[in-house]
Structures are given as C-alpha cells and as structure tokens.
Amino acid sequence: MQHVTPDRILLVDDDREIRDLLVTYLTKNGMQVVAVPTGRHMRAALEESGPFDLVILDLMLPGDDGLALTRDLRAGKHKATPILMLTARGDEADRILGLEMGADDYLAKPFAARELLARIRSVLRRTRMLPPNMRSTDEAPVLAFGDWRLDTIERHLVDAEGVVVSLSGAEYRLLRVFVDHPQKVLSRDQLLTRTQGREAELFERSIDLLVSRLRQRLRDDAREPRYIKTVRSEGYVFSMQVEGQDR
C-alpha cells in the first residue's frame, strides 16, 4: 500500500479550548497539527517545524493580529503557503481585507469542525491544481520589466520616474503569477485559482475585471497591450522579459 504523507497544518489561535478541540479533530482526520497561541510562536514554529501545507490563522490575536501576520507571511519566504483565516468579527470589511492581503479563504466563528476540515481540503486541492512550475517561488526583491519595477517586499510598482503605484492584494498576486511565468499562456482557471481562491467558483469571469484593473495600473492600452495580451479562447500571456534585481 502506498504511504500517504499527512498534511501538515499550523494553527494559530489564542483560545486554548479551540486549539485543543481542533488538534484532536484534525489529527483524527489524518493531519499533523502544530498549534500555537500568538504570532511570535507562529514565527518560531515556521522556523523550527516548517514547512507547513497550510496555516490556520485567527484574526483576533494578542500582539500582531491575523491581518499583520498574513501580510508578513505573504512578504516572506513562506509566501506560497495557503492561509485560512478565522474571524469572530461580523464586519465583512475585515474578511475582505484579509483576502486582499493574501488569505486564501476565511471562516467565521462559531463554526463546525467538519466545515473547517472541508475548507482546509478545498484550499489544499485548489493549491495543488497548479503544476509545480505555476507555484510562487522565492525571487529577487525587485523584478524589472518594461518601464516598471515590482518591489516584492513592499508589494508595489515603481515607474521609470520613481513614482510608486500601489496594488491591491489581488492585483499583486495576479501580477506575481504573470512575472513569475512570462511568455507563457495562462488559462483563466489557473489565474483564478491562484488569485481569488474560493471566490473563483462564484465569479468565473472576474479574472477579466482583475486583468483590466492591472492593465490600468501598468498604463497598458487594452487595445494594443504591451504587457498583458489576451489569447483568444485560452487566457492571457505576459509578453515582457523579466529581470531580477536587488533593491
């Protein structure tokens, strides 16, 4: 019988009862779980026990909250690790902000353990739909193309005159997929999976709107684009050469 390596989950929640309950439940369902109470402990676990297949991150934490930790994860060497955010807040804006910063999914408390398990499996399945060469890899801190430089630490664009152009989380993730794979035709399904997670299932054409927004950031003429070209019936291709640089 073929040996299956268990999925490794890092759970970050300051509620000990929730940690104990989820560790027991997820372990019974074949996962290896490391549970910690704060962002400081999360960083230590990533260094000492990583890598992990997925991070479950509570929004409300002492010290650095889940939004700050999501931003840090997406800017560091663990940027490709999927994040599932837990939130007790009723404000939809917090959930949207979490997704914009790079979370792959969210689940509002209180929740059933089996729903969390289903979300974990769904996020992992979407992530693994991408072939290995479609997953984010560590690159130079600055990626240069055409008239632009993309600062992968600060997650913004800089034009030829040094003017900074801000990007939303979704815009940055889409641009990273493009610049990581220049001159390759990428389907809408591949781009949706990487940039929008579960929302992709609800808005199949939303990638076109996101590409349109990114073209505006790049000052790219949609009728005669220099950077992102449409390939009829297939998807999009980033047509520029990309060069890694130091900051």
Score class of each variant (00 low, 15 high):
M1H: 07
Q2P: 12
H3I: 12
H3T: 12
H3C: 06
I9Q: 01
D13R: 02
R16Y: 02
T27E: 12
T27W: 05
K28I: 11
T38Q: 02
L46E: 11
G50K: 09
P51D: 10
I56P: 06
L67K: 06
A68L: 10
L69G: 03
L73E: 00
K77D: 13
H78P: 01
I83M: 10
M85I: 05
A88I: 09
G90Q: 14
A93D: 15
D94Y: 14
G102L: 04
A108P: 01
A118S: 14
R121G: 13
R125M: 04
R128D: 13
L130S: 08
S136A: 14
E139C: 12
D147I: 06
R149W: 02
D151L: 07
I153V: 15
V158R: 09
D159W: 01
E161F: 09
E161V: 07
L174K: 00
V177C: 12
V179G: 03
H181S: 11
K184H: 07
Q190M: 09
T193F: 00
T195Q: 02
T195K: 04
G197R: 01
R198T: 11
F203T: 15
E204H: 10
R215F: 03
K229T: 13
T230F: 10
R232S: 12
S233W: 01
F238N: 00
S239L: 04
R247M: 06
